[in-house]
């Protein structure tokens, strides 16, 4: 995301123009009939039959072929092959590219299963965790997080870590986190040291 080449800039300029020249939506039904209440008036919203059923896989990456074919061993021993395409979104603490995916990483992948059993991924979340924790220590660059009776290190990553307090908008100011609070930590597990890079810490009242 930080390596912006000339061609990337050209493409972005083009896409920016497309978005700015596109339809504008301001909390009203600007693009066709969209009425959430009407949608829920039916006992259950109908599902779109056009879409083939999605496949899901999880596990640890055991090998990477050609930078885009991930060999994954599932937590119950099953084997998956996950194909990253130029339409696949990849999350690893933030939206990133296939170059950041490494052997030994854990993943969740959603996509379509091809006839040969490979899953063509729509979205891949690498090392993502969403943990129900208790704040047990606060440092300048880390939080100690009580999880399942043990303690995890939650690393605060400048420019990446955000906080949400009692459902308010996300902020990069983590100074409202208090000792003893229950929190939900969305982050990226670090296989090399077992810590978690915090993407978002959500605390309640």
């Amino acid at each position: 995301m930080n390596r912006t080449t000339d061609s990337t800039l050209d493409r972005r300029r083009f896409l920016s123009a497309s978005a700015l020249g596109g339809a504008t939506v301001v909390g009203a039904t600007a693009l066709g009939a969209v009425d959430p209440d009407a949608a829920f008036a039916a006992p259950t919203p109908p599902l779109d039959p056009a879409v083939a059923e999605t496949s899901f896989a999880e596990g640890l990456i055991t090998g990477i072929d050609g930078g885009t074919l991930l060999h994954v061993k599932g937590s119950y021993g099953e084997q998956h092959r996950i194909q990253l395409t130029n339409a696949t979104s990849i999350w690893k603490l933030h939206p990133t590219t296939a170059e950041d995916v490494e052997t030994g990483d854990g993943l969740y992948a959603r996509g379509l299963e091809m006839p040969d059993g490979t899953i063509a991924a729509d979205a891949v979340w690498v090392n993502i965790v969403n943990l129900d924790v208790t704040v047990r220590g606060i440092g300048k660059d880390r939080l100690a997080l009580g999880y399942h009776g043990g303690e995890l290190i939650g690393r605060i990553v400048p420019g990446r870590s955000t906080a949400s307090y009692a459902g308010a908008a996300l902020t990069d100011d983590l100074s409202g986190v208090r000792m003893g609070q229950h929190a939900l930590v969305l982050g990226a597990w670090r296989p090399k040291d077992g810590a978690v890079d915090i993407a978002r810490i959500t605390v309640g009242h």
Partner: peptide
């Protein structure tokens, strides 16, 4: 205020994806 543009990846043409839609869809099934 949010603006939306949908662009065909191969042709680079703008696409109107809302034509004929009566409801927000359940794409993922």
């Amino acid at each position: 205020v949010i603006r939306v543009g949908v662009v065909d990846e191969e042709t680079g043409e703008r696409v109107d994806v809302t034509a004929g839609r009566e409801r927000p869809g359940a794409l993922l099934g």
